[in-house]
Design a protein around this nucleic acid. Structure first.
Length: 114
DNA sequence: ATGGTGACGACGG
DNA sequence: TCCGTCGCCACCA
């Protein structure tokens, strides 16, 4: 499986996440049969553009702790993700240090397979 | 070749 | 629960 196929597999799986539910990078990795590639799932989503950005619900993927990955200081990716989630009704809580997270016990979607 | 770098995760204190 | 640390793996300078 080359990187193009990996990206395609990730996008296909992310499309399976129901509205108003979220899952983790690591879980997507498990579902496509590559459990140790959670970091690469993030890379695949990072490279989304054009039609992909419209058809892949990338905002429904967060870290295993429920935190929305920051993408580094000075970037607005995390904020955009928060807006997308709240727009479809998912509650995002803000911690003391300003970090954003989703309660996985309420919104989490972790099926053993699809 | 080689060391650094992520939209990460498991584990231990 | 909150951290620090370590493992992970494709890419890139």
């Amino acid at each position: 499986m080359d990187s193009a196929e990996f990206h395609a597999a990730v996008y296909e799986m992310v499309r399976q996440i129901p509205a108003q539910r979220v899952t983790s990078y690591g879980h997507i990795a498990k579902l496509i049969g590559m459990p140790r590639h959670s970091r690469h799932v993030g890379q695949a989503l990072k490279f989304l553009s054009g039609d992909g950005i419209e058809t892949v619900p990338w905002h429904r993927v967060v870290s295993a702790s429920g935190a929305i990955s920051s993408r580094g200081p000075g970037t607005d990716g995390a904020q955009r993700q928060r807006e997308e989630l709240e727009a479809e009704g998912v509650e995002v809580v803000i911690g003391r240090t300003g970090e954003m997270r989703v309660d996985l016990r309420t919104w989490g979607w972790f099926p053993a397979s699809v």
